[in-house]
Design a protein around this nucleic acid. Structure first.
Length: 126
DNA sequence: ACTGTGACTTTCA
DNA sequence: ATGAAAGCCACAG
């Protein structure tokens, strides 16, 4: 019963619904939500936990796209240098939110990793 | 399919 | 310390 021209040849059954977000993006968001309050994580760290060992930029891009979804603790993500990477007024707001959670942000947006770095069990940090 | 984007990260000077 | 350049990867148009 198989006709010679099989339309579904090799093609995976496309998802019934269009993806609201790409899979990698979903993982990034999942990790983002997993960041405990009062802690901060680097883009590269979040990316690594999301399955993208070098996807720091993807995290940044996703976050930028989400800009407005205040449901997510986007303000808990900072640069690897322990510095807030978000320029402009949004960066000031990020520092404000962190301070409200107990994270001391130095003038210029520096954060003490040793005190506020998020350490998930999956990654034994030094 | 190709190109551009991006709140990064690391390294070299 | 400061700055520039390259490397990086996934998504959107």
């Amino acid at each position: 019963m198989n006709s010679r021209a099989n339309p579904n040849r090799g093609r995976r059954p496309a998802p019934a619904e269009k993806s609201p977000r790409a899979p990698a993006t979903e993982r990034i968001l999942a990790v983002l939500k997993s960041i405990p309050k009062g802690k901060v994580a680097a883009y590269g760290q979040v990316a690594a936990l999301a399955g993208l060992p070098n996807g720091a930029r993807q995290v940044a891009r996703v976050l930028h796209s989400l800009s407005g979804g205040e449901k997510l603790p986007w303000h808990r993500v900072i640069g690897a240098s322990g510095r807030i990477s978000l320029p402009g007024a949004d960066g000031a707001e990020q520092a404000r939110r962190l301070a409200r959670e107990g994270v001391k942000v130095d003038t210029g947006g520096r954060v003490d990793w040793d005190r506020f770095r998020w350490r998930p069990h999956s990654i034994s940090a030094a």
